[in-house]
């Protein structure tokens, strides 16, 4: 597949000693959604600012649609749309005015601009609020408008820096739908996120970044398959106190099973087993038959896939979601470099 963004050994050093981006290389295929997943301070925004030509790189090379981000700066700006983490909209203007202003920055003739704005307002469902000033807008509405404003020029590549950070679940859902729809229409999308779910749901391929480096790259499925395994949790109904142990020995011998552990299941603390297997759904029928054969009755059985959360944890030894798990990561050097411009 053809690459639209190519980044080679990109490096950014702030103030001579803060290494924000440490020699990363990756490429984005034309027409895909490419995710950059990592915690605060991983170098995501810095990478985005370099790609959008807002920040000068220290070394390395990057091209978008064959255009060098330094040498062809102006041309790059014509083919990208960018929505920043800060939401760059003007609160004193109305939604429509904001979009029209953005149109004039892209030299879209007036009549075409009016049409385009109407169309964009419809896309992000802001027609009714179109002539209200942004002061009265919710966070989700502002973000939707910001997304619309990055689309006025119908860019080849849309670059989104944490598109849903700080949004409520409904707004997040909306933004995800727009992103998916834009991608269906053929737009290449590069986005950063610190949410596993977002990266998993939206991206065709993704990089996991941590402390300025790419620690893993692949499709969400690949990444999950590489590091994690499916987990089958089952509880057994038996008067025999040895039933679990017996079952565990039998299961451990099955093909495709990585690991079997004893555990207690549910609130009642019933005896149960945790089975880790490469392909969980495929071995379930066999597993059920096997247990049936030795007279162990299954009470409950659940299958869960590995999550990117686990992937990140395994790769870096740390949990990803800083906001939700602040207590757990305190004192481990998190965010000591602070938030970067």
């Amino acid at each position: 597949m053809e690459d639209i963004i190519v980044v080679e050994d990109l490096r950014k050093i702030y103030n001579k000693d803060i290494l924000a981006v440490d020699g990363i290389s990756f490429s984005v295929h034309r027409g895909e959604v490419f995710g950059f997943l990592g915690p605060n301070g991983a170098g995501k925004s810095t990478t985005i600012k370099i790609l959008t030509t807002l920040l000068e790189k220290t070394s390395g090379r990057a091209t978008i649609d064959g255009l060098d981000i330094d040498k062809d700066q102006a041309a790059v700006r014509r083919i990208i749309g960018y929505s920043s983490q800060e939401v760059g909209v003007d609160d004193d203007l109305t939604a429509r005015e904001n979009l029209l202003l953005q149109c004039s920055f892209h030299h879209i003739p007036k009549e075409k601009a009016i049409q385009r704005v109407e169309q964009l307002l419809e896309t992000v469902k802001l027609q009714e609020a179109a002539d209200r000033r942004l002061k009265t807008f919710s966070g989700g509405m502002r973000k939707r408008l910001d997304l619309a404003s990055s689309l006025v020029s119908d860019p080849k590549v849309l670059i989104l820096d944490e598109p849903t950070t700080g949004l409520d679940p409904q707004s997040r859902q909306d933004i995800w739908e727009y992103i998916a729809e834009l991608n269906r229409q053929g737009m290449t999308i590069f986005l950063t996120t610190q949410y596993m779910e977002e990266a998993d749901r939206l991206s065709d391929r993704l990089c996991i970044v941590d402390q300025g480096k790419i620690v893993a790259e692949g499709t969400p499925l690949e990444l999950k398959a590489r590091i994690g395994a499916d987990i089958i949790t089952l509880s057994v109904r038996s008067d025999d106190p040895e039933a679990c142990e017996t079952a565990s020995t039998v299961i451990a011998k099955m093909e495709g099973v990585k690991e079997v552990g004893l555990c207690s299941v549910g609130i009642s603390g019933d005896k149960g087993l945790t089975v880790m297997a490469h392909n969980g759904s495929a071995i379930i029928p066999q597993l059920v038959r096997l247990l049936d054969g030795i007279g162990v009755q299954i009470d409950q059985l659940t299958l869960s896939g590995p999550t990117l959360d686990e992937v990140f944890l395994k790769l870096t030894g740390r949990a990803l979601n800083v906001v939700e798990r602040k207590g757990a990561v305190k004192g481990r050097g998190w965010g000591k470099r602070g938030k970067r411009p």
């Binding site: 030509t53 609160d91 920055f105 404003s149």
Partner: peptide, 14 residues
């Protein structure tokens, strides 16, 4: 500069 509007203007080809 603070609101991010400057970045938005800069990314536009002006």
């Amino acid at each position: 500069l603070e609101s991010g509007f400057m970045d938005k203007m800069r990314v536009a080809p002006i």
